[in-house]
């Protein structure tokens, strides 16, 4: 069995994003980037399965420009067997990314896809579902537990609004990782050094014969209004008082 893990390069979660003066994009040049944390969790879960012997190979794939190689190398350092990049000069929307991946997977088949449930830049939470829809595969989103069964099926516990739900999906399946699916390993220094020399296969988006025209236009980026708070109250009685004044029954 082969697991494919699509990963995305995003601004690191410890860095706050800034808007370009023309309000048409986010500043990315010179900003620390890393693997989207949810994709890192997905990769860790796939690697665990390979390490336990059920899975033959874990391949990672990312869409983007040459800077994207950096996260592919991090993935190789964690232990991914192969790294692939679909070249696009700008990071496309989840919709275009899913279309590109679908076409790419026709030439690079796999049995299961595990990816992060959302990217922490656009917060869209769409890629896995889109890909499952395009491929006509079963889907198990927001997974906190995954166990592969012998009979071409996978059992997945999903984090849903009211609690947890466990489903069994026919393979091939698309799974998206929630926070508690796995704890990503740290790559060792030798593994990081070794990953520098490993090959990354590059496919140009044009080879996939897909026009890279977006169907949505995103603009007028602005900082969300910041709340002005911080009023100190001395004790619980005073808190009760101000809450009552604000019309709260406390």
């Amino acid at each position: 069995m082969i697991i494919c893990v699509p990963i995305k390069r995003v601004i690191d979660y410890r860095v706050s994003a800034h808007i370009r003066p023309d309000a048409d994009a986010i500043v990315t040049a010179g900003v620390k980037h890393s693997i989207n944390p949810f994709d890192e969790i997905a990769l860790e879960r796939a690697l665990q399965e390979r390490d336990s012997g059920l899975v033959k190979k874990v391949i990672v794939v990312a869409v983007g420009d040459a800077d994207t190689n950096e996260i592919l190398r991090s993935a190789l350092a964690m232990g991914a067997d192969e790294a692939h990049r679909i070249h696009a000069s700008k990071t496309p929307s989840p919709f275009l990314t899913a279309q590109l991946l679908k076409l790419w997977l026709e030439k690079n088949p796999c049995d299961c896809i595990i990816t992060g449930k959302q990217a922490i830049d656009d917060d869209a939470n769409q890629l896995g579902q889109l890909l499952a829809g395009f491929l006509g595969w079963s889907q198990a989103m927001f997974a906190s537990k995954v166990s592969f069964k012998k009979e071409a099926a996978v059992e997945v516990t999903r984090e849903i609004d009211g609690g947890l739900e466990t489903i069994v999906c026919q393979m091939p399946a698309v799974i998206s990782a929630d926070l508690r699916l796995a704890e990503p390993r740290l790559a060792s220094l030798p593994a990081i050094m070794l990953a520098k020399g490993k090959p990354i296969t590059v496919t140009d988006a044009s080879e996939l014969e897909l026009s890279l025209t977006e169907k949505t236009r995103v603009f007028n980026y602005r900082t969300a209004p910041i709340r002005q708070g911080g009023k100190r109250v001395a004790n619980l009685n005073e808190l009760m008082q101000v809450l009552n004044e604000a019309g709260m029954e406390a």
């Binding site: 989840p94 919709f95 275009l96 917060d123 939470n125 579902q129 889109l130 395009f134 889907q139 609004d161």
Partner: peptide, 23 residues
């Protein structure tokens, strides 16, 4: 835009070949 809707809308969008909008 919760686990219910986020699970369904992008898959429906894929079948209709449209780019979904979240949240």
């Amino acid at each position: 835009a919760n686990a219910f809707g986020k699970n369904l809308i992008p898959r429906i969008a894929a079948l209709l070949n449209v780019s979904p909008i979240d949240g």
